[in-house]
Design a protein around this nucleic acid. Structure first.
Lengths: 205, 205
DNA sequence: TATCTTACATGACAACTTGTCACATGTCAA
DNA sequence: TTGACATGTGACAAGTTGTCATGTAAGATA
């Protein structure tokens, strides 16, 4: 956690440091990030940096946590747009985030740039995805779905959200074309929706 | 890619270097891995190392590729055990890998230790998971499942394998108890099997 | 056998990196 | 004015990486 000294900093100085940090984390994977470059860009002396943050991890965590909120907001907004229906959430969230990226809304480009550089790395641990999932769970509308138990509901959300995250990552890494990834995500949802096993139709007549 | 010089090395020397590297990669995340420590442990001079590998990434790739085969074998074996049925693959693969870990079979502990240290990082890019998926796709038995198109089949395998991988990671990172993770995975498969949407039963009678 | 050629081994080196610490400079209360 | 304390600062030790000139060994050639 950053020190109080950091939070007491005059906002412009603080912002400049955070901007420099975000830029560097976007440019290089965690291991190659140079505190030297950051403090040069932010024009603060070396000693000061260590008065604000205990080390690189501390800085990284703080930078990511800033974006964490934005992700939470995006999910929340998507949940509204999807009318609370879990199965509709993934594609809406996918589109929303990519739209944000295109507009560089809230610095989303940087956010995903950082995640891209640090593929999974600590992202899963640093971002509090469990929190986000719990929030979705509370607000979800389960009518029309035969997922009764809480365990089933959480498992379903886990499936849906991790698939969405995986898809977004794939796009941001340039591993595949956006259209193809979206199509694949859509197919997955369809499978989950209808189930893949052929049912024995009981001959009721 | 390692140089020919490396492959021409007397096997004991080569093994010692690889062992030292694997140990270091298990101990520290990629960014903190020290080539210094590796060459000290392997008792080779600094210059020699750079005659074998172009840099740390080169070494990392080569170490991981060794384990890649083992993963492929594990998947292949699981596919046999599951009779080629995609829906049965995840839990069988999950159990098989964890069993291997408990027995430290084929150095699986180290393998997952490395992945744990580098959570996702390049793992997804360095391990050729697409290759593994294609292999599974070729050998899968689709009878009893209503996934007709190739796109649907691939999407299903994607869902199943990524869920399995995610579960294994969760266990290896100690994020959750093995039993809970296995239960969650099992629930997910069940959902995918039967589908989550309530069907309108056409009143045929 | 003498010599040329090629492959490989080696550690000193420059150019970085990080975190610390003794000291300088502010700022507010008494 | 004087202290007490928070904050700013850059030189520093100890570490890192990749390079490169030089040394050595082994094979081919004449």
């Amino acid at each position: 956690m950053p020190t109080n000294t950091f939070f007491n900093l005059p906002p412009p100085k603080r912002e400049k440091l955070l901007q420099a940090a975000a830029a560097e984390f976007t440019r290089k994977p965690y291991g190659e990030v140079s505190i030297n470059r950051i403090i040069q860009a932010a024009e603060i002396p070396r000693g000061s940096f260590y008065q604000y943050f205990s080390d690189k991890t501390d800085l990284f965590r703080h930078v990511l946590r800033g974006y964490d909120r934005q992700l939470e907001t995006a999910v929340s907004k998507s949940l509204d747009l999807s009318g609370g229906r879990p199965l509709d959430l993934p594609l809406i969230l996918f589109d929303l985030v990519l739209h944000h990226i295109q507009e560089n809304h809230d610095g989303f480009v940087q956010f995903l740039g950082i995640l891209r550089q640090n593929l999974g790395m600590d992202a899963g641990q640093l971002l509090n995805l469990p929190d986000i999932m719990r929030q979705v769970w509370h607000r979800a509308d389960w009518t029309g779905l035969n997922v009764g138990s809480q365990e089933e509901q959480l498992a379903l959300l886990d499936l849906l959200l991790s698939s969405t995250g995986q898809s977004l990552m794939a796009v941001c890494c340039g591993k595949a074309a956006m259209e193809a990834v979206r199509e694949r995500l859509s197919t997955k949802i369809a499978l989950i929706r209808r189930g893949v096993e052929i049912k024995e139709e009981p001959a009721t007549c």
